[in-house]
Design a binder for these strands. Structure first.
Lengths: 185, 185
DNA sequence: CTTAAAATTCTACGCTGTAGAATAATGGTT
DNA sequence: AACCATTATTCTACAGCGTAGAATTTTAAG
């Protein structure tokens, strides 16, 4: 039952090399399984590799988490401009929430990241969902800010209190926002 | 320049005993100074005491953080029912935001705590600010949910991105909510 | 054939929360 | 005054964390 002693140094071309994608996807599944950000040692353990090997591909842990985030962020729902905008908005929001719930730790990385691209992803899709409304520029920005930060607040609450909250808890507040937007239209 | 070796065992009555309040307030000022949750060793260091002494007063770190949270939560603005409700609402929200910004780490503790009291504190004050509107029960709940989670989202964003955001960033979104509430009144 | 680069492991450091044991002073009982 | 349980404290230690730096081995280029 020995744990397969590993040989030092660069491995031969036979035994598959590590890749950053492999590392990211391993980290992703650990994150999903354990409901929290895995340690570097956990990731490397799951890969059957020394912890420091990770650092050949990522300069530090947060670089890995950022890559993870980038790889996931496009999964959120892309609303269509033609449909019922309220339905599309709800779909978008619930999909975002589901993503943030499935991968706890994503939220913090998303907001902390130096590169804003991923954080803006949801804002962009939100803009899409709101275009049918033809809001004034100011109202549009306010609505975007309100919904984005509201969603992050909900996501954080669900993350801190996993048992007590379901993703349907946004229905009421979102409905209120919709009413507001219909009036401001 | 020796670091004053400490004697083991219970100290004599002369040299003032530790208290949980002293520990909490030390933790508080460290949190404020360093902009993050202090380690137990940092707190004990500032108190000139061994780290494990803390555990005589708190069963674990999160118990200390919860006590800290409880001690701070009443600092948020108490809105008056008579005044202009929009002004009162804004004051309340900005005071909450300022608190969460001054003590980063408070937010997570607040949301994670098993005892909901402190987390409801803001909701209660919010209810106060909204009473002049005489909203229907459903609308009231929705508004409360919306504002609470929005505020937490903003607080988180400011915490993750301290340089980029000021507490005035809530003006627009809050204004939108106010418009919505006036209509639903 | 040599050699630089690349990919990996190993060792180690300082940090974290905290369990468990040792120690010393206190306050109450006899 | 002697004893003793209780209380308040320190010490030692452990497992885990991120990661710096060096050693090691293989690959690929000249």
């Amino acid at each position: 039952m020995s744990v397969k002693e590993r040989k030092r140094g660069r491995p031969g071309r036979s035994q598959g090399q590590l890749t950053s994608d492999l590392i990211v996807s391993t980290a992703r599944s650990l994150m999903q399984k354990n409901g929290k950000v895995p340690s570097i040692r956990q990731v490397s353990g799951a890969l059957g590799v020394d912890a420091m090997a990770i650092y050949h591909y990522f300069s530090n842990k947060s670089a890995l988490l950022e890559a993870l985030t980038v790889s996931l962020i496009d999964d959120i729902y892309e609303p269509t401009v033609d449909g019922n905008w309220q339905v599309e908005l709800e779909r978008l929001c619930k999909s975002y929430l589901a993503l943030l719930q499935t991968y706890p730790g994503l939220l913090e990385t998303l907001l902390t990241m130096d590169t804003f691209g991923p954080a803006q992803r949801f804002s962009e899709r939100l803009a899409l969902a709101l275009t049918p409304l033809r809001l004034s520029e100011a109202t549009f920005t306010d609505a975007q800010d309100l919904i984005v930060d509201y969603m992050h607040g909900v996501a954080l609450a669900m993350q801190c209190n996993p048992d007590n909250l379901s993703s349907d808890c946004i229905d009421g507040a979102l409905g209120l926002v919709c009413k507001a937007l219909e009036v401001s239209r």
